[in-house]
Design a protein around this nucleic acid. Structure first.
Length: 828
RNA sequence: GCGAGGGUGGCGGAAUUGGCAGACGCACUAGACUUAGGAUCUAGCGGUUUUACCGUGGGGGUUCAAGUCCCCCCUCUCGCACCA
């Protein structure tokens, strides 16, 4: 062992050994444990978020190995996506070359961090050996009706020249580039995720306690299930009906008008021949032009236009004017809303603005609402009035009764609506997995036969940023023959959303090199689902929801037999510096490579784990890093100093009975530390407190020197036990450092598979305990007493204390509470 | 507006079941060693008017005892946001 801690030398040494010996390959026996961190986009450089995410994951992986598990811990690349194309446009590099170059750089950086991956399972989603199976899934989903194409209004990002799924639009802006999105009519491919809405929602229940509550809540809200009724309203003098969805069918008798989305398909028809055509047309046009920019303003003001047509309230027969209204969404429910101004705030505001009638149909307990005097809608509970046969019924009960009544009469029924929309997967970009479809003038839309997969992304395309899909301009790709009739045909030029790749990569890791199909059933059955998944909270909806959907699809396609991909989920917080998320524009970025250069990987790992618990944001602090580095140096020097005495003895292996009294404290601290660290890592995943506990033990060791140890073999044995404990407990956190110290003690085998130390329960028990004496809840005295001393004796000792007497002088205790081994509280 | 999660020294954070608030680390202060110190070691380190009192965003409550439980309020972060 060297006298100086030299991280660069030892880190290189151990990393090379781990790679050469394939230390982290699976198959060493033990119960399976699949630990996965979200794979990175190969930007070319790892950032602090990666360091943190992968350090957390690596601790768990290494710890599980030391618990005797057979750990699958793979790494790969989410390699399709826009930046590769942008780089091509900006620098003339081909996206494939750019991506593979970045992967090579990032792999080296990850290896320099000492993460314990099984590199033999590495995959990149841009390789046809990966995306070919995705194309197969697409075809099989098409067959099952889970893929379809439709013309729809889509979110279009002009900057990225592509469409975005609903989930990918944040506050009207592109989730990737931050530019405002607009809506556009395009033919798009969709995955029918709504077919699984109910199951995805129900599945949330099973995740409780294993996933963070807020992720579950976000998913539930996103799916957005509403229970209510569909009701049909016949239109006066027209031969069609308008269907609405409502959750408040109990207020049906108070519906006085109807509101439709401005882009409702019947809008123009309703205006035709009423003299309102021009006004309606103007309104539709205004709404269409009113893009997201001034949407916030528009949100405040209710606005609409009368179509000139009427419908009839199906239960009262009332003639209800039909309006178009700016607040009705075409994408939700039926795009039509029955307006009950007395009991819905939006309808109320609209009614006041356009002077429409208001009828109270629910009276709250204790006061009487009068329509003309309302200043806002009453949305609470109450008893029905003005509701014919339902008068006097509590509105909660009326929900069911009215739904049943409508159903009897054939004008409505109970219904469930979801906020979740189908997942649009078409992207007009080059660097993605081609959608395996051919368009033939004679046969129409024809799926590429499975035997012709993969549809390979052509290499020679022109990427000049001129807009539109580069694939569409690549004649050699587009022109093909129809697989059905052999006539000349054209290929689909859209590629798939890159979230499709990340929806199933975690399964492919189980059999990354399998080439007879997407998934090797035996391997997937063995390893999946992922036992513990770790990644950023920013994927709480998108990636995790898509993955949960995809897992169910693959289950129904017969590939797997589980439904939830990730048993446990840990979402780690962001890395912050100077109060803001690290970003180039803020200039507060810390480069992990510079950090490794200066302190080594172990220091970087240790600080990112020590500074805060994983789920909280981590405030980066250069001086804190320095502190971690100093700790490692201090520990190194201490071990180096003690080694000559410790290597002469075996670690202490006896029981507490053989430990001399003067060393009982040391022994106890060692085993208390084991107990604490084990529960911190195994149960709470709080590595910061685990590290603190080890630091305390190290501080305790400072009280002993090599001279005393050389003279007293029992002390030496106890110190060796303590030092080995420190090494083993820190091994998952600072692995290179610990390997080096471990080998200094003469162990030939690396410590990746050395069992986590067990604590001796006897060692945790102290013979004497500190009992706090309070007077009226304030601490006045601390007594050291034998453990489990009888209550009466403890009480006597407390009262015997002169400090206690001072505070109780002249007063009679009214009450004395004694908590064994802990506290006495005297109330005077 | 709705939902979720936070608010504890100068800073990051501990306090696992209601039982000594501030573990561990950073910063800071003093001392030692030293030609030197941004190295290392030792000691101190919530506040104040220091035999004591105050103190976990603010106010109230329950309790012998509250950072922890209950009610009200303030504030910050995140998500959703006219979802009928």
């Amino acid at each position: 062992m060297e006298a100086e801690y030299n991280p660069h030398v030892i880190e290189k040494k151990w990393q090379e050994r781990w790679l050469a010996e394939k230390t982290f390959a699976t198959g060493r026996g033990g119960e399976k444990y699949y630990l996965l961190e979200m794979f990175p986009y190969p930007s070319g450089k790892i950032h602090m978020g990666h360091v943190r995410n992968y350090s957390i994951g690596d601790v768990v992986a290494r710890y599980q190995r030391m618990l005797g598990r057979d750990v699958l811990h793979p790494m790969g690349w989410d390699a399709f996506g826009m930046p590769a194309e942008n780089a091509a446009i900006a620098h003339g590099v081909h996206p494939a070359a750019w991506t593979h170059g970045n992967i090579d750089e990032m792999r080296v950086q990850l290896q320099r961090m000492g993460f314990s991956y099984d590199w033999d399972r590495e995959l990149a989603t841009c390789d046809s050996s990966y995306y070919r199976w995705e194309q197969l899934f697409f075809l099989q989903m098409l067959e099952k009706g889970l893929v379809y194409k439709k013309k729809s209004q889509v979110n279009w990002c002009a900057a990225c020249q592509t469409v975005l799924a609903n989930e990918q639009v944040e506050n009207g802006c592109c989730w990737r580039c931050g530019e405002e999105t607009e809506s556009k009519d395009l033919e798009q491919w969709f995955f029918r995720i709504t077919a699984y809405a109910e199951e995805l929602l129900a599945g949330c229940e099973a995740l409780k306690g294993k996933w963070p509550e807020r992720v579950i809540t976000m998913q539930k809200n996103w799916i957005g299930r509403s229970v209510g009724a569909e009701i049909e309203f016949s239109v006066v003098d027209r031969d069609f009906k308008i269907k609405v969805f409502t959750t408040r069918q109990d207020t049906l008798y108070g519906a006085t008008f109807m509101s439709l989305a401005p882009d409702h398909p019947r809008a123009r028809e309703l205006a035709a021949g009423t003299g309102r055509e021009a006004a309606v047309e103007a309104f539709i046009d205004k709404m269409r032009r009113q893009e997201r920019s001034d949407r916030d303003l528009a949100q405040q003001e209710k606005e609409g236009v009368f179509t000139g047509s009427y419908c009839r309230n199906p239960v009262t027969g009332r003639k209800m004017p039909i309006y178009l209204a700016n607040f009705v969404l075409s994408g939700y429910g039926t795009g039509a809303v029955m307006a009950v101004p007395a009991h819905d705030q939006r309808d109320f505001e609209f009614a006041r603005m356009y002077d429409l009638p208001i009828i109270v149909v629910i009276q709250p307990e204790g006061c009487e609402l009068v329509a003309a005097e309302l200043t806002e809608a009453y949305t609470g509970d109450g008893v029905l009035v003005n509701s014919d046969r339902f008068d006097g019924v509590a509105n909660r009960q009326a929900l069911d009764l009215i739904a049943a009544y409508l159903e009897e009469r054939g004008i409505g029924r109970k219904a469930v609506t979801y906020r979740l929309r189908d997942w649009g997967v078409s992207r007009q970009r080059y660097w993605g997995a081609p959608i395996p479809i051919v368009y033939c003038d004679r046969c129409g839309t024809v799926p590429v036969p499975e035997k012709d997969l993969p549809v390979t992304l052509p290499e020679d395309v022109i990427l000049d940023g001129s807009g539109g899909s580069p694939l569409a301009r690549t004649e050699a790709f587009v022109n093909t023959v129809c697989p059905r009739c052999g006539a000349p045909a054209r290929r689909e030029t859209d590629t798939m959303d890159t979230f499709v790749e990340s929806s199933w990569y975690y399964m492919r890791y189980a059999c990354a090199n399998y080439d007879k199909g997407p998934l090797d059933r035996a391997a997937v059955d063995k390893w999946l689902p992922v036992d513990h998944y770790i990644g950023g909270i920013e994927h709480a909806i998108l990636h995790l929801l898509y993955s949960r959907f995809f897992t169910r699809v693959l289950r129904d396609l017969g590939y797997i037999d589980f439904s939830e991909p990730f048993t446990r989920l840990l979402t780690q917080g962001m890395v912050i510096k100077d109060g803001a998320k690290m970003s180039k524009s803020k200039g507060n970025v810390v480069d992990p490579n510079a950090l490794i250069e200066r302190y080594g990987a172990d220091t970087a790992r240790m600080f990112s784990l020590f500074a805060s618990p994983p789920e909280l944001d981590l405030e980066w602090n250069d001086q804190g890093v320095e502190g971690a580095y100093r700790f490692l140096n201090r520990l190194w020097r201490m071990v180096f100093a003690l080694l000559p005495a410790l290597e002469k003895v075996e670690p202490f292996a006896g029981g507490m009975a053989e430990v001399p009294d003067k060393y009982a404290g040391l022994r106890r601290k060692t085993h208390q530390t084991i107990a604490r660290v084990r529960s911190d890592i195994e149960e709470r995943m709080h590595f910061n407190t685990a590290i603190s506990a080890v630091m305390e033990l190290v501080n305790e060791l400072k009280n002993h020197d090599v001279e005393s140890a050389a003279k007293d073999p029992v002390l030496a044995a106890l110190l060796r036990e303590a030092v080995e404990t420190v090494i083993l407990l820190l091994a998952p956190i600072v692995p290179h450092f610990c390997e080096e110290l471990w080998s200094a003690f003469g162990y030939r085998e690396g410590l990746s598979y050395v069992p986590v130390p067990e604590y001796d329960p006897d060692s945790l028990v102290e013979d004497t305990v500190l009992v706090v004496v309070q007077i009226n809840g304030k601490v006045r005295e601390r007594l050291t007493v034998p453990r489990d001393l009888e209550e009466e004796k403890v009480r006597e000792l407390a009262f015997a204390s002169h400090r206690v007497q001072k505070h109780t002088a002249g007063k009679t205790p009214r009450k004395v509470i004694v908590i064994p081994n802990k506290l006495v509280n005297i109330v005077v």
